[in-house]
Amino acid sequence: MSVHPGTRELKKGSAELLILSIVEARARHGYDIARAIDERSEGALHFHAASLYPLLYRLERRGWIVGRWTEKAGERRRRLYKLTPAGRKALAAQRSGWQAFVRAINRVAGVEHA
């Protein structure tokens, strides 16, 4: 439902950055990550499960995040994803890259800062 025209490509390129940012502060499970992205973007960005989990697995395979099943009393077990040190470096690199990219776009497109 929430395929916003014009954001599809942007989203795809920036998806990794989004996920790494979401798990930066604390470990979260998959649905939690999707909801956090939803909320912080005020609904503008939404990840379907079918695309979120392959991304998570890819980041995990790269060693940027690590997923671990944890169990809390009275709840079902959840797979929580946590940022690894390597992931932290990657996040920093992607952040500065993204800011440089946004600044460049703004300069070209003539968008003023608010």
Binding site: M1, H48, A49, A50, S51, Y53, P54, Y57, R58, E60, R61
Partner: peptide, 19 residues
């Protein structure tokens, strides 16, 4: 249900990445 629209693509991706 919308969440699993693209399940086949998901399956293909998952088998590639999931360790």
């Amino acid at each position: 249900l919308a969440e699993i629209d693209a399940f086949d693509a998901f399956a293909a991706d998952v088998t590639r990445f999931r360790q």
